[in-house]
Simulated scan of single mutants.
Amino acid sequence: MSVTEVTVHVNREAANTLAPAATALETSESFTLLLDGHETPAHVHCRLEGDLGRIASLDGSNYYIEPGTVTPVPIAVDTGGIDRPVDGHLEVVTGYGSESVSIDVTVLPGPPNVDVDESLAKPARSEPDPTTLERGLDRVPGAIGFEPATLGVLALGVVAIGIAALTTATIGGPVATAGMAIVLVGTVVALFLLVR
C-alpha cells in the first residue's frame, strides 16, 4: 500500500508562518500530514473542514513543533461508506490563529469490499474429481478386505486359470494338466504373498 503524505513547513521564513508544499490532495486512503519545523518552535492546530470531517479523523488537533524536526499527523480516512468523491479542507493554524493555510482534500471511493469466507483458505484440489467407477473400485477393497493390487492379481489369476482350464479341456493329456496345475499353484502363491 502506498503512503500518501502532504507537508506543511512551519516557521521556515519567519515566526508564525506556514508554507504548504501542495495546496491540494486527492486520495482514496488514509494519509499523513507532515509538520516540518524550521527556525523557531511553534504550536500548531489542525482541523478537518467540510464533508471531510464526516469520513476522516485526526488522532489529535494540537501539536508542538520543534525546530529541525518533522512531526507526522496521521489522518484516518474511511472510504467504506462513500460511492462518490468527498471534498473538504485540512486547515493548519499557528500563531494563535494569526496564520493559517488550507489544503483542499478530495477523497475518492476506495475499491469495493470483497467478502472472504473460510473456503478461500482451503487449498484447491490439484487432482480431478474421481469418476463413478473409481469411487466404486475404491469402496470394493474395504468391503471385501483386500487392497486393489491384491484384487488385480486375483483377477489375473482367475483369467489365467480359466485359459489353462480351456486349454486342458481342448488339448487334454498329462502335459496340459501339469500346466494347469502350475498356473493354479502360481496364482495361489501370489495371493498368499500379497495377503500376508
Rank of each mutant, 00 (worst) to 15 (best):
S102W: 02
T71H: 10
T106M: 11
N113G: 13
V101N: 03
P85S: 08
V77S: 13
P72S: 04
D115W: 08
V105A: 09
P85A: 10
V114F: 00
N113H: 06
D87F: 01
V77H: 12
R84D: 08
G95N: 12
V77T: 13
Y96F: 12
A76M: 14
H89I: 09
N113I: 11
T94C: 14
L90T: 03
T79C: 13
P85F: 00
V105R: 06
I75W: 08
P112V: 08
P111V: 12
P109K: 01
V114G: 02
V114Y: 00
T94K: 06
G81T: 14
P109T: 00
G110E: 10
D87H: 03
G88D: 04
Y96S: 15
Y96C: 14
V101Y: 01
D83G: 10
G95Y: 11
I103H: 04
G81E: 05
N113L: 12
G88R: 03
E91Y: 02
D104F: 09
P112N: 06
D83Q: 14
V107N: 07
I103S: 11
Y96G: 15
V93T: 13
R84V: 10
V114Q: 11
S102V: 12
D104E: 13
L108T: 09
I75L: 08
V105P: 07
L108V: 04
G81A: 05
P74H: 08
P72G: 05
V86I: 13
T79V: 15
P109E: 02
I82H: 02
R84G: 09
I103A: 09
P111S: 12
P112M: 02
V73A: 12
